[in-house]
């Protein structure tokens, strides 16, 4: 398997003192963390460093946290997001988690232990996601579809019915998937889909 890049956390808040304090807190937890006060600076920083987890404020002067989330995901689908806000609303909380794939939505003043748990979860999620991306990056679109249905436990026949293709074609795609991932069986494919490979 490919060696994972080091886990690095980015903290983004337009209040520099606060961003620095959160970053220091994470460093004290043994994590590698750096802070930014501008979304543009964070996106620029991504060129040099890969951030596994971004802890971002929602209301910022230039770009709001949700727009930034779109940009981040476009550049790196494996980045985990944790949102913070001083203006908590139910609508925002739902948006943060459902639409923008945030792992948590933290209210300021921050609950430290919850932040730390969220960041650790984010790093773990990012690592799994990265594994899957690495393994399935070489798939064609059709292979990807077959893989997604297969790992849910469906037989070749069911996959063929679900995708509207012949069983023979499914078998071909399956052979290609196994050869690309070098997996030796369905169980390993399932583990791979969960980032455990």
């Amino acid at each position: 398997m490919t060696v994972q890049p080091p886990s690095c956390v980015a903290v983004l808040d337009d209040d520099a003192d606060f961003a620095a304090a959160v970053a220091r807190l994470l460093v004290r937890q043994g994590l590698e963390a750096s802070f930014f006060t501008k979304p543009a600076a964070l996106l620029g920083g991504m060129m040099a460093t890969r951030f596994s987890c971004v802890v971002s404020d929602i209301q910022m002067a230039e770009t709001d946290g949700f727009t930034l989330a779109e940009h981040l995901r476009a550049r790196d689908p494996c980045v985990a997001l944790v949102f913070m806000t001083a203006w908590p609303t139910t609508a925002h909380a739902v948006d943060a988690v459902r639409r923008h794939g945030g792992l948590d939505y933290l209210e300021k003043p921050l609950d430290e232990s919850r932040l730390i748990v969220a960041v650790h979860e984010g790093l773990a999620w990012s690592a799994r996601k990265w594994q899957v991306e690495q393994a399935t990056g070489a798939f064609t679109r059709r292979e990807r579809e077959v893989f997604d249905v297969l790992v849910k436990g469906h037989s070749n026949k069911e996959v063929a019915d679900l995708l509207g293709i012949s069983v023979r074609t499914v078998e071909d795609h399956r052979a290609a998937i196994v050869s690309k991932t070098r997996a030796n069986g369905l169980a390993q494919l399932v583990a791979l889909s969960r980032g455990e490979g």
Binding site: D15, F18, K108, P109, L110, E112
Partner: peptide, 12 residues
């Protein structure tokens, strides 16, 4: 809102 921002830093 204004208080919660510096207070977060302070608490950490």
């Amino acid at each position: 809102h204004e208080i919660s921002q510096p207070l977060s830093t302070l608490a950490i």
